[in-house]
């Protein structure tokens, strides 16, 4: 290549005249290339080692929690310190009930807020709402508990499932608002315009075009919020507290009594010196993680549907 160019007869200067070709050699002896090689290895190692805790947690859950897995876990009550056997049926019921109550409280508010945000994109109020939702996303979960303690426990005079559900719904709200707004905005504008062009009011457009189209995305947000809320402990320890009994008596569900939950059961039993209770804590952790993972997976598969539609 360089040979004809360096021919003085052509009157063209050699463009590679000052280049030391050995400098461009791609070899590990060169500090530049060596540095590159080392950093490649380092970053690979760091990424893979970040996954070690995940596998360790999963293996420990299967090993230590799997031992106790059985029907008794779901039908029996937590054991006293020196008892053997037992389960956490009441904690599962309590977790499910409080999460459901929290969904009932947060979904209507969150969805209506999201509809407002998707319709009034640029208004000042919308910006403030969005900012408030983002601030709530980073809100420490224990402060949601403190808030529910001040607002519900102190006014009703006792720990209750309702207070726990209020604390959880404060944590679910921002996720629902932000994901639903995204889902509503992804609906193609020509669909909206077609609806308005047919004489539909904006409420009709929302109910008959926007919501059905954006439903998978909205449900994804709800499922992610449910997954997060189910695993929360901090907002429950001093709002719902804990209970060693089933939450119904005389055929009525007691919403205003202290209520057990899986997360608080794990927290209480983890520090106990009794083997039976520690084993139950591991089994409860396994059940809780399965619950959270299933909610996450449902959310993920729904969000894939949403992408295909958009």
């Amino acid at each position: 290549m360089a040979e004809p160019l360096s021919n003085p007869n052509l009157g063209i200067e050699d463009p590679f005249a000052g280049v030391d070709f050995s400098e461009l050699e791609h070899s590990l002896r060169r500090p530049r290339t060596f540095m590159d090689f080392v950093l490649n290895g380092l970053v690979t190692l760091m990424t893979l080692s970040a996954l070690v805790p995940l596998f360790s947690v999963v293996l420990m859950l299967l090993w230590r929690g799997g031992k106790r897995l059985g029907l008794a876990l779901f039908t029996q009550l937590p054991p006293a310190p020196l008892e053997t056997g037992g389960g956490f049926g009441n904690a599962i019921v309590g977790t499910v009930l409080m999460v459901l109550l929290a969904v009932l409280l947060s979904v209507p508010v969150g969805l209506m807020t999201a509809i407002y945000l998707a319709q009034a994109k640029q208004s000042k109020v919308a910006e403030v709402v969005r900012f408030a939702a983002k601030v709530l996303t980073g809100f420490p979960s224990i402060l949601a508990g403190v808030f529910a303690y001040g607002a519900i426990v102190l006014t009703t005079g006792g720990f209750s499932a309702l207070a726990g559900a209020v604390a959880l719904s404060v944590l679910m709200l921002p996720t629902i608002v932000l994901t639903s707004e995204d889902a509503l905005r992804m609906v193609p504008s020509r669909m909206k315009e077609a609806s308005v062009g047919m004489g539909a009011t904006s409420t009709q457009t929302v109910w008959m075009v926007l919501l059905p189209t954006a439903m998978p995305g909205i449900l994804t947000g709800v499922m992610l919020a449910v997954a997060r809320a189910a695993g929360e402990t901090a907002p429950l320890i001093f709002t719902a507290l804990f209970s060693n009994y089933w939450m119904w008596s005389h055929g009525e569900v007691q919403v205003l009594q202290p209520t057990a939950s899986l997360a608080v059961l794990i927290y209480n039993f983890a520090g106990m010196p009794f083997k039976n209770q520690v084993e139950l804590a591991w089994a409860a952790a396994l059940v809780l993680v399965l619950f959270v993972l299933i909610a996450n997976l449902i959310g993920q598969s729904l969000s894939n549907k949403q992408v295909q539609q958009g």
Binding site: T47, A50, L51, P53, L54, S56, V57, M60, L61, A227, A230, G231, E232, T233, A234, A263, I266, Y267, A270, A281, W282, A285, L288, V289, V292, L293, N296
Partner: peptide, 16 residues
């Protein structure tokens, strides 16, 4: 998988 690390409840991390 890395996002899954965030899905595990903090009380389970405490136990672990």
């Amino acid at each position: 998988l890395i996002e899954l690390l965030a899905a595990i409840p903090s009380v389970v991390y405490g136990l672990w």
